[in-house]
Design a protein around this nucleic acid. Structure first.
Length: 896
DNA sequence: TACTACTCCCTTTTT
DNA sequence: GGGAGTAGTA
């Protein structure tokens, strides 16, 4: 099964100016007529124009008045406050269609930015439906980072980079910082590189280069060396011809500031700017947008040499004078930071900006109530003060919700109304009231998972698709319990989020090989793979190469070349290093004559990398090999190695296949933008949700962000929203008693139903929900009628489990599908059911004997390889090489 | 150099 | 409870 079918289609192609050829066609009026977009006469008023006005174009037909206004208001700044489920993406795409069909701009003149590749892809897809192939020609529709990166590559020399610069991922970043810490003799125990990476990232998010970081802030790290480290990190990046994610924007801003002519070029190009999820923009993104959204300089002084504008930028980006922070617009929450909360913001957008340089046709779409990324630098403030920043802005509110039923919407609205820092929208629906939002208490988190599992099976029995069901958790550690439970039930599920494809070790290793081939100066890549697979080139060797490299100011690869000519290394190390260098020389030569995909295969093969995983006995080795194949496959999308590498780190992401019917399990954060008929929201407890840590660190602002998160969670639901809280939860390994979340109390009683859970024991009346006993337990028992049982049977027949064929089913005595006899209601929660009963059940239920025999070697998705030590019907006892001895039903293993 | 044993810490996550 | 990362030893 292809683990990742979605990967093939949506990868960006290298930014070839494919539109150039098409652009001329765009001037022909009728080019867009097919696919429903009406023809137009460019700008030539008269009869045609009136005719056009009379006939409502098809793409406008389905819009409500507010949406339509948002689409048709093309001139001047527009802020669209689009509540959850009000048709935000639709407005954005229609607006683009409108601009094009009105002949107001060509595709290459529209800048349209999103945060995620997924959102960009979605927009391209929808535009594709509206306009036909024309979207191929939306070259400037993409994420902030990919567009920033693209601009940066075109002008790389101006910011001391080469156009083939590498984009570093967090891992590379940390490794580089570790080296710098070592060079400065800073104890990386006390001052972890990861922390510094976080700080630098934060500074970059705020648009601060090393010189602009307020001294006080820079000093908190490494005994005052934080600023210096940031500076030397930036220097190192230039030497390595590399940029990190933050640089893609920050260096772009620098480019624009230092080269007004370049800026002007882009200002001239972009006639229209559209921004998705504006509430999530950080300061750097704001600055970047501000620069681009100035009218080109013909009417006024070049924007960035204008003292006023420079003042703005500097104020915004805190030039170290101490007055560095933007004030929080709507009533500053208690802030630990003692910075003066004065009018820094006031200088940012002096009202006088407009007359000389009217802002562009910029349209930002967002929802302040869905701002949930404050902790990583997003400034809700940006959206809260849009009208101030863009004088004359038109604000359009989309409040008609087309997603959820009345009760759900009322609950969500009532909840979010407890926030003070908001622009205020009231979502309304014409839908029926539907079912009330339910709140259910469970004795502990295990029982919560059991109860939700039950409800899901109930829904399934009622004909609901698993694809229409989602469980949204606050923190990812909550997922395990559900996974365990679903494995037990044999309920198919998929985890959304988690490590991205290109973050996986095997993918990064493979990429590192290719990076070294592409650029011998890529020290970080070289270091990553020099001893992977093991070649006897350990720390000592690498350290020596570093010393050499530093001394002579040459990259590690060159240093290695020099060192093998000496006898500084032991013969063994020297030999294997020489082999490695020779391999790279060979691969580089082959690059000229073979395709990049072929080359990748050759490299993975000859380096021994594939072999390393083939020999690996751990359970995920097979998946890793599969991922490597997928990587090679995905390379076909690109023209050459260079193009592939340029885009891979920005654009590669993983989409679980939506083909199989499965329950979705994800965090609330990753649920933003999605919707499901049935949404389960477990873990509504004080400390977990709202998160205690957020409360401690961010005070009321944090609480409000948590509340927005709750709002996001609720508004994901179309028909049913089911909240849960547990009285006892295991946090960091220890059980602690919890109280229901304050958010539950903030829900309107009228729209909420407190359901008596079916089992478990009391959660005190602390929340006002009253005591309840969970004593009706039998429903959790193993019933042959449950979908779970039937699925288990089916799985057995098919010989696979529910999770994308990845993490396997299988169980040991603590998580057997048949041992789930709840002993809830008591405080003693013995996890394991009586084995004897289990055995009987299995013997009775399956009746078959195993096709395996003693001592067979088998493979299990979750536990890896092992040998069968005991057979009991279809139940095998297997001694796994890594996981130890487990009891597993035979259908979960295959012969190795 | 490589493997094991111990310690530490423990939201959220995109690019 | 467990994963990751480090220190210590074969």
């Amino acid at each position: 099964m292809p683990p990742n079918p979605a990967m093939k289609a949506p990868l960006h192609r290298p930014a070839v100016p494919s539109w150039a050829e098409h652009e001329s066609q765009m001037t022909e009026p009728n080019k867009l007529t097919h696919h429903g977009v009406p023809d137009h006469q460019p700008a030539s008023g008269g009869i045609a124009a009136r005719a056009r006005a009379a006939a409502t174009p098809q793409y406008l037909a389905g819009l409500n008045p507010e949406q339509r206004e948002a689409v048709e208001t093309l001139d001047g700044p527009v802020l669209v406050l689009a509540g959850a489920g009000t048709g935000k993406t639709r407005v954005l795409t229609c607006r683009i269609a409108h601009i094009l069909s009105q002949g107001r701009a060509r595709p290459g003149e529209i800048l349209s930015v999103t945060f995620t590749n997924k959102a960009a892809r979605e927009m391209k897809l929808r535009l594709g439906h509206m306009l036909g192939q024309a979207v191929e020609g939306m070259p400037w529709l993409g994420t902030f980072h990919s567009i920033g990166g693209r601009i940066l590559r075109t002008h790389a020399e101006l910011v001391q980079l080469k156009s083939n610069f590498t984009v570093l991922d967090v891992d590379d970043q940390v490794r580089l910082l570790k080296q710098l810490l070592a060079a400065e003799n800073i104890d990386d125990k006390r001052w972890p590189a990861r922390m510094l990476a976080g700080l630098i990232d934060g500074w970059k998010n705020r648009g601060l280069n090393p010189a602009q970081v307020p001294p006080g802030e820079a000093a908190v790290f490494g005994n005052g060396k934080g600023g210096k480290l940031y500076a030397s990190y930036q220097e190192r990046l230039k030497i390595l011809n590399a940029a990190d994610f933050g640089d893609l924007l920050l260096e772009n801003i620098r480019l624009f500031r230092e080269h007004p002519d370049v800026l002007r070029q882009y200002q001239n190009r972009f006639k229209f700017i559209l921004v998705d999820e504006y509430q999530d923009t950080n300061v750097a993104q704001y600055l970047w947008l501000r620069l681009l959204s100035q009218a080109p300089s013909k009417a006024c002084a070049p924007p960035l040499t204008s003292p006023r504008l420079r003042g703005e930028v500097d104020a915004r980006s805190a030039s170290g004078e101490g007055d560095s922070r933007q004030t929080v617009l709507v009533e500053a929450p208690p802030h630990p930071d003692p910075l003066p909360a004065s009018g820094a913001r006031e200088q940012i957008a002096p009202p006088g900006m407009t007359p000389a340089a009217p802002p562009k046709n910029i349209c930002c779409v967002g929802d302040d109530d869905q701002s949930i990324y404050g902790w990583r630098g997003a400034e809700v403030d940006n959206i809260l003060r849009f009208e101030h920043d863009f004088p004359g802005a038109k604000v359009i509110r989309l409040e008609r919700n087309y997603r959820s039923t009345g009760h759900i919407l009322a609950a969500a609205s009532h909840l979010i109304a407890h926030n003070e820092g908001r622009l205020g929208k009231t979502l309304r629906t014409e839908d029926v009231d539907g079912e009330k939002v339910t709140v259910t208490g469970a004795w502990d988190s295990e029982e919560e998972a059991r109860a939700i599992g039950e409800e899901i099976e109930e829904l399934q029995r009622g004909g609901h698709k698993l694809n229409d069901i989602a469980i949204l958790v606050r923190a990812s550690f909550q997922m395990r319990e559900f996974e365990d439970r679903f494995v037990t039930l044999g309920l198919p599920y998929r985890v959304i989020g988690g490590p991205r494809f290109y973050e996986r070790a095997e993918i990064r290793d493979a990429l590192a090989y290719l990076r070294v081939i592409n650029s011998a100066a890529d020290d970080l890549a070289f270091e990553r793979i020099v001893n992977v697979p093991k070649r006897g080139l350990g720390d000592a060797t690498v350290q020596m190469l570093h010393d050499h490299g530093r001394k002579r100011r040459i990259p590690l690869f060159e240093a290695a070349r020099a060192v093998v000519e000496t006898d500084e290394l032991k013969p063994k190390a020297r030999g294997s290093l020489r082999d490695l260098l020779a391999s790279f020389d060979r691969w580089r030569a082959q690059r000229e004559v073979t395709s990049h995909t072929e080359l990748a295969e050759i490299v993975l093969d000859e380096s021994g990398y594939t072999e390393m995983w083939q020999k690996d006995r751990s359970a995920d080795a097979a998946g890793r090999l599969e991922n490597l194949k997928e990587l090679v496959r995905s390379m076909e999308e690109f023209e050459n190695l260079q193009g592939f590498l340029e885009h891979i780190s920005l654009v590669m992401d993983r989409e679980g296949s939506a083909e199989d019917d499965a329950v979705s399990l994800m965090t609330l954060h990753s649920a933003k933008g999605l919707e499901f008929d049935n949404v389960f929201l477990p873990g509504w407890e004080e400390g977990l949700f709202p998160s205690q840590r957020t409360l401690d660190e961010q005070g009321r602002a944090g609480l409000e962000e948590e509340r927005r998160l709750a709002h996001v969670g609720l508004t994901r639901a179309r028909r049913r929203a089911k909240l849960y809280f547990a009285t006892n939860r295991r946090i960091h390994g220890t059980w602690s008693t919890t109280i229901p979340s304050r958010f539950l109390d903030e829900l309107p009683a009228h729209n909420v139903e407190i359901t008596e859970s079916k089992g478990g024991s009391g959660w005190g009346g602390a929340s006002g929900y009253g005591p309840s006993r969970f004593d009706n337990v039998e429903s959790f028992g193993s019933s042959y009628a449950t979908p779970g049982w039937q699925r288990a049977q089916a799985n057995r027949a098919r010989g696979q489990s529910g999770r994308h064929g990845q993490a396997g089913g299988g169980f040991n005595e603590s998580q057997s599908p048949f041992s789930s006899r709840s002993d809830a209601g008591g405080s003693s929660r013995s996890k394991r059911g009586p084995m004897v009963i289990e055995g009987e059940l299995i013997a009775k239920s399956t009746g078959t004997t195993s096709e395996f025999s003693l001592d067979d070697r088998v493979f299990h998705q979750k536990f890896g390889y092992g040998n069968i030590v005991k057979i009991d019907g279809n139940k095998l006892t297997i001694a796994f090489e890594k996981a130890g001895e487990k009891k597993v039903v035979d259908s979960f293993v295959e012969r190795a």
